[in-house]
Every structure is written in C-alpha cells, then in structure tokens.
Amino acid sequence: MTDKAAMQALARLVPPGSRVLDLGCGNGAMLDYLQRERGCSGYGVEIDDANVLACVQRGVDVIQLNLDEGLAMFDDNSFDVVLQIDTLQHLRNAETMLRETARVGRTGVVAFPNFAHWPNRLSILRGRMPVTRRLPYQWYDTPNIRVGTYKDFEVLATKNSLRILDSFGLQDGQEVRWLPNARAGTAVFHFEHA
C-alpha cells in the first residue's frame, strides 16, 4: 500500500505537529511525508536491513528492532500517534503488539489488508485462496501470517478495550465508509486506549 492517495488518506489521521512512531516503517516514505507536509517528528521501527538503509538515506530516524520482541524501548504514552501500516499482518504476536501500540501512543492507527473484500470472498467461494493486487502472494509463500477482516478487528479492538475514534475502508486511495468490510481492500482503524 504505497500509493500516494492511500498515504495521504492515512496521514489525515495524524494531527499536524504530532510526535509519531511508525512501526514497520518500510523505506520511511510515510514519516518523511509527515515530517515535510505536516510538521511531525518521530521515529520509524524496522527489521529489514535494506529498509533501515533507505530510511537513513532519506534522513528519517529509524530504530532497527524486531517487533516480535516487543516495544520495551518505548515509554507509556510517549507518542501522539503510533502507526501500524501494513505491519499487523506480519506479526506473530499481533494482539500483544496492538496492546503495545495503545500503551506507547496516545492514539493508534492500524491499516491492514481486509480479507473480507468481495474479490477475496469470491475467490474463496471458488475454492481458492485469493491472489490480488492487494494480496499478491500464493498461500504457501505469503508473508501475511495474520489474515483478518475489517469486522474481525472491531472484535479484537473491543476485546482489548480500545475506543475506536474512526474507522473506514480504503480502496484505490479513496475512503470507503459504506459497507467497508465488503467494499474495501484495506481496513483502517484510528483508536485510543479507554
């Protein structure tokens, strides 16, 4: 999910001047954008060597860490916003990391591929796992080890006492607010801890 429109839609959830922690920040494009366009500051967290290098190249502060080892390095409420953009689906301890996100940030933004998007449902009805632009991998080589839906996340958020401030789907860079669980390839949740 690297297209500009999607990035801008997510950036709108980050108030100008925020202190941001971007978990699984990739090449640092989002933080770079937030710093340049919205006067934000903060750090990215990445495990991948090439992404760490890309962040240093573009002047984005990055901490090389394995998120599956937790966020012990970060204090409670030490960030205005913690981002998990296309990160949750790669984590073994996705629920723990969601709680950690809520602990470290005053608010959190989570975006992940919505498995209940209608083309995926259609594929399953045909008896095959979906292979789409959003989920381009085969079932046997996908790095997306957590497969969930928009509705699934609502249940997980409630279970962990998170207050959802806003939620919507994203499709082709556009917000989807009507039937997002069926009509959007990406689920987006903006929340705070209760």
């Binding site: 750090y43 962040c55 990055v62 901490i63 090389q64 860490l65 970060f74 030490s78």
Partner: peptide, 21 residues
Amino acid sequence: SREIVKALLDNRRSVSYAEID
C-alpha cells in the same frame, strides 16, 4: 547499545540505530 538508544528516545533526541547481523 539499545540502552543508549532508549535513554536518547526518553529524552526525545534524534537517533537512528542499526543492528548489523
């Protein structure tokens, strides 16, 4: 090294950290 990084984060300093395998 992570202890130093953490102390810098606590102080909101600009810091990058690479752990080379």
